[in-house]
Write a protein that binds this DNA or RNA. Sequence first.
DNA 1: TATTTTATCGAACATAATGTATCATAACTT
DNA 2: AAGTTATGATACATTATGTTCGATAAAATA
Lengths: 192, 192
Amino acid sequence: MIDRRVQKTRKILSQALVSLILEKGYDAITIQDIIDRANVGRSTFYAHFENKDQLLLVGNENFRHILKSKVEDGELTIDFEFFFQHVAENYDLALAFFGKKGGHVLIDFFRDLIADLVMKHYKIQLQVSEKIQLKMLNYQADAIATSIIRLLTLWVEDQMPFSAKEMAGVSNKMIKQLEAEVFNIKVVSQTH
Amino acid sequence: MIDRRVQKTRKILSQALVSLILEKGYDAITIQDIIDRANVGRSTFYAHFENKDQLLLVGNENFRHILKSKVEDGELTIDFEFFFQHVAENYDLALAFFGKKGGHVLIDFFRDLIADLVMKHYKIQLQVSEKIQLKMLNYQADAIATSIIRLLTLWVEDQMPFSAKEMAGVSNKMIKQLEAEVFNIKVVSQTH
DNA sequence: TATTTTATCGAACATAATGTATCATAACTT
DNA sequence: AAGTTATGATACATTATGTTCGATAAAATA
């Protein structure tokens, strides 16, 4: 059981960071800003976290893990609907983490996560054809993951004018298109 | 005619910044680091630049403008070959600007530039059908521009194992694929 | 409830970066 | 050769950093 004081301190520090991100942007925030806002002693901060990044990561572990599970659940099909849905349900947090004023910690985390998933998805089919440029495919998987996170950023920054389903649809299309290109499958020919 | 001392100061400050980026990463660099490395007085720095970002932007205006012209020359077809070629010919600079240790100034600049070009490219065809979700198309253009810059980052970070032509090919394909998709939407809306 | 454990605060500290200002000097232009 | 100006050196007040310490309040435990 974690000491109630500890829970309280960590929570208020996390909240202070989030509110500060929305105000002045992650990069401009100092430790001093955070402990002033949270009304917490300087030594107390360092008793819990080493720096800003760690506070953002550990302090919002819950949100991060849940969001991670949303995208990992649909591993086989890589369906991002639950992912975007959960973002929409936590708008303030998402804005702080993925918006333009947010830091790069969570963006990098999810970019790498999605890139891995996309690669895993492709690799199932790679066993068949071996002539693929694996390194270039890695680049492309990473690039697509990056563009999906970028879509997310634009979406939350723009107050989410589309549904989570629409956003997931666009994301899935990107992955499918690369898939079609790599494996020489003509998606268009299927609709004809 | 610009004073020779001014030219010398600006050049050495720019070089100091680039070398520092490769060593410790853009974000960790202080003004103090720069003037120490350049052996330039503190007041001299501020006589020329307001901050790090401005030094990076103005100090390497030449490289930026040339690189910009490379991608703008091929406006009609959006051919990135010259773009990646020029990057390859300035490897150290590119690594400092687009590598993982680099800042976000130039990355943001070229992302926006490419996104605009892509949109301009699409808009030619958009005149025909007006039912297109223009906002979503903007998102996608931005996302694709982001992924192309990400490809660039991975490429330079990986010591450029592919030719500029190959990189341009992949970039162009991404744009073409979205183009095909948009065209697809047009067809569907017409048949309904 | 009484006792022990521990998280927090407040204060102090040395170090470092910031942005500004002044002035003598060296380097440049004309 | 004379006038102009960019630079370096120095100083300054302000702010942030990361660490340490003891007193105190709040928690867990018996």
